[in-house]
Structure formats: C-alpha cells, structure tokens
Design a protein around this nucleic acid. Structure first.
Length: 120
RNA sequence: CGAAGGAAUCGGAUGACCGCUGCAUAUUUAUAUGGAGAGGAAAGUCUGGGCUUCACGGAAAGACGACGCUGAAUAACGUUCAGGAAGGGUUUUUUGCCCUUACGGCUAGUGCUGCAGAAAAUUAAACUACCUCUAUUGCCCUCGUGGCAUAAGAGGAAAAGGUGAGAAGGUGCGGUAAGAGCGCACCGCGAAUUUGGCAACAAAUUUGGCAUGGUAAACCCCGUCGGAAGCAAGACCAAAUAGGGGCUGCAUUUAUAUAUGCUUGUCAUAUAUGAAAGAUGCUUUCCGCAUCGCAGCUCGGGUAGGUCGCUUGAGAUAUUUGGUAACAAAUAUCCUAGAUGAAUGGUCAUCCCUUGAUUUUAUCAAGGACAGAACCCAGCUUAUAGAUUUCUUCGACAU
RNA sequence: GGCGCGGUGGCAGAGAGGCUAUGCAGCGGAUUGCAACUCCGUGUACACCGGUUCAACUCCGGUCCGUGCCU
C-alpha cells in the first residue's frame, strides 16, 4: 500500500450525481465476486474515479464506510495499470467486506482485462 | 459468597511506520514542517429552544393542536428534583424498604356499554324462590272463626339463586307478615368545620343516609402553552444555453413627394418623410385561433458552479459558597472535528481482557460491545460485550 | 440531512371499540360425452412489543419494515 502520489496519473473524483447516472446508463459494466466495475470513456484525457455503496449492501454506516475505504485502497493500488481517459466507478457488494484484500485486487484487475483496459 | 432488579461511571492502554481531511507557518503554489481530528448514545427524529426566512399595526377571543396531582429547578419542555396520592413487590402482620404511574373533571352535558341475563341505568325488573290477603281443591283431627299442602287472582318486598366486567354501598345485630339505611355499630362514600402543611394532602369532629356502575388513551368541559416552515433554512458572487426589457441598424406593408429608366403606365427601382393602419397560416368569405423577423449593444432576474452560514458556546475543567436535591452563583484556567460522492483508517510491537487447545501455570491460536459527526444546544427513547461502585430483596455458609 | 404516508389470507382490497367483508387464485363436489361458463362447499389473515378498557385490528406510546417528497 505504499503508493506515492506522484507516480499516479492525474485523476479526479467524480462528484456530480449526473456523472454517475451517465456512466451507469451509457458505459460498460463488469461484475466480479468482490466488486462491480462500471466504466466509460471521457473526453478529458484523465482518469476520474467514483465509489458507490448503497444501503442495500449493509444497513450499518460503519460497514459501508469500511467497504468504501477498501475500495479506495484497491483503486490506489491498481490505478497505474488502468488506461487513461476513462471514468471508473467501483460498486461495493456484500463480499467486499469479508473477501481477502489480495483477492479484491485480482478481482479489479480481472475486470479491467475483461473490458480490455488493462495495461502493464 | 452467589442470584435477580434499580441507579451511576468507564467503554481497552502505550509506541512506531504508512495513508486520509481541515488549520497554521514557510516558500518553489503544490510541496515541506508543526499541531488537531467521532459518541454515550454521534442513532431514532419523539419533545423544548437558539438561529434563518415568510406572514403580521397591537391586543384579546374563537377554531385547531399539545399538555394536565403539588411545590421547586430551568432559556424552555411532555425533562429533572423534592413531596403527596394510588397500584404492585417484600414481610406472619403493621411500620418500614424497594419499584411503577398519561395522576384535572363522568355529583356540566351528550354518547357508548356486544353476548349472556328477568332486568344494563334516576326512585329499573320479577324467571326461580319469599310473605300477606282473597280463594279453589285435597288431607288430618280435638269438627272449629281449626291445622297442613296448594291451582288462580290482588298486593308487599328487593334478602337468596343463576347471568355478567358491572345488578344501585359492604359486614353484623335489631326490626318485620316477609323484607328493606327502616334503625344502630364498624368500614366505605359525600358535605361542613377545625388543626397541621406554601400546596397537593393528612388527621380529628359534626353531619347526610347512599344520592355518585364503568368509560374522558369517547365527544367534550376547565386550566396552561402554541403564527408557519426549516441550514436541502437563508445571504452573496455568478458561466454556457434558452427566454424577457431597452436602444440602434436592417427587413415587411402602405401613403405622399422627388429623381432615374423606357415598354410612357393605376409601371419599375432608389431616396426622404409619415403611419403600423397590417401581413402570413388554418383551401375561399364572415367569425375565431396562432405567429410576427434578423444583427449588434446593453439591463436586470436567475440555473450549473462557488463562497458564507460553520463552530466561542444556555462552552469545558477545577475549587469555593448557597440549597435536602435538581440546580445556581463567584473565582481561576483552557479553546477541544468541521467534512460535502462526504476525512477520522491500516499494519507491526508490548501490555490488558475474553474464548479454545496443549499441557501445565506458562505457551500457541482466534478475537475486542453497540455503533460513525453533517447548523448548534437541553432532554427523552432505543442498542450496548465487559469492568467498577452503590442500594434493595432472596438463597447458602460461618461466627 | 430534513418532512410525510403506510403495514389485514397466496394476491388485490374494504371495515373500524364487541364472531374481520368481498373478488381473484387454490382444493373438493354438482352440471357436461369431455371441457369452459355457472352453482355449492372449504382452508388460510389484522407486522412486532407494551399500556388504557370488561373487551383493541381499531385508541395511546415504542420498535421493525416498506414507501413518497425536498436537491
């Protein structure tokens, strides 16, 4: 987890509700055991990231926050391998909470490979 | 010592490394350094306020809603404290102790009270049963104005039975044809007076003679309080696009004047001035409906987005004083999260606690309750592993 | 974050202090040569926990779940 910020490509957070909706409706989606990846090409040439954990996953706010923190950590580790110029949204599932951390990373890489956006 | 219940406090500790979000300082303006970073419930959004906007000349009443023993505390409350009353637990009983209570009024009015039961609410009703009188019939004998039983009728009474949540005070004695607060004693209830208490209320005395079944978490009456909505409140700055107002120019229709052209006209084009009378579409007419342009400048509203609101406050800690207490006052010290797709985390080490295993008093393994700020306070309610303190009750053992 | 509404059989849906209607679906029977339609019968419910009341699905308080609006 020792990721230096400088090595990451320039990226931003997705904040607006409308961005999430467009990615959901017009982008691609790939489901794995630990998480769900939604992505869509943007015209900005940078990577934008977002995270979704709904109340359906867990009623407790503590658990939802924990899932979000794990997703953030996974994103920080795998992001150098992702293609530029796309929006990525990670959706948490129930298994995200209990699945071993390395498996989560592999899940994300697998999703990227399946959507043909993985790069060495 | 153990168990149950009530109340209160705490809610793993220390260090290192790597991250995340504000703040301060420095400069290279995105980096470094420093320091800070969830709770007792941050939760539910159930009450009461601050604050903001809207409404409103002021006040009161009505309507609607909430609350309701008394006194105090508080900015306020449906909260808290102290007291009273009622109910429950414990105790052989009383006292005592502990727990609980939406605890004004059904003797202001109106309603409701199923089924069952004879009868369900002002002097109610009469199924069984009771008594008296009239009187039929039968039996008995001492043969009478007799006794016993009894169909029917008239009346008395509300004691007993059964129904029901509830049957119009309860128990006992007297009384009576049988009975009845009809009378008396005790108890319950109502009224008045006196005493104690700020009061709720309590006690005593006198008196009434039972009138007042229950239900107001039924309508309602009485008293008190309340304008409404909420930080996604609201204030400010302010793109793009669309639309609105104003100004200028062009365009459209028409009238007049002038000039030019040749086809010499009720012609065409251009310019100037005035008017907007109008034009187009819906096949035509009347009626009706719809639309009225283009470019530039400018004005204000306002969306996205941003900034503020935002954390110094009914503030925290300590001490003293007043008060039974809730709480209040004084003095000193301190500043202690402020995010916005939303930070507050992860790993390791040592210790603490729990569980399990090995076997033995140490090792190994797994784990650490409920739960995450979103404008801020005061409460209430709900969730909570474990630890500690304290009160009450019960049980066991010892003295 | 704030403000509201609701929870009744397998499904829909009334009721409202005194045994919870009705329709569809299910099951059994009648009718029919066999079915459909029709007729008859039948089983299964008031989200949960307390309180008020003689009596609560209904009234009151709390919990859980579902759902709408404010951007």
């Amino acid at each position: 987890m020792n990721i230096n910020k400088k090595e990451l490509p320039a990226n931003e957070m997705l904040t607006a509700r409308s961005d999430f909706v467009t990615v959901q409706s017009k982008g691609k989606k790939w489901v794995s055991n630990g998480l769900i990846l939604q992505m869509r090409k943007n015209d900005l040439g940078i990577i934008r990231t977002g995270y979704t954990v709904s109340k359906k996953v867990d009623k407790s706010a503590v658990m939802r926050n924990r899932i979000k923190r794990r997703l953030r950590s996974v994103m920080a580790e795998v992001l150098p391998n992702a293609t530029n110029g796309y929006d990525y949204i990670l959706v948490g599932r129930k298994l995200t909470l209990t699945r071993p951390y390395n498996d989560l990373i592999n899940d994300f890489k697998w999703c990227l490979k399946k959507t043909e956006l993985y790069k060495k």
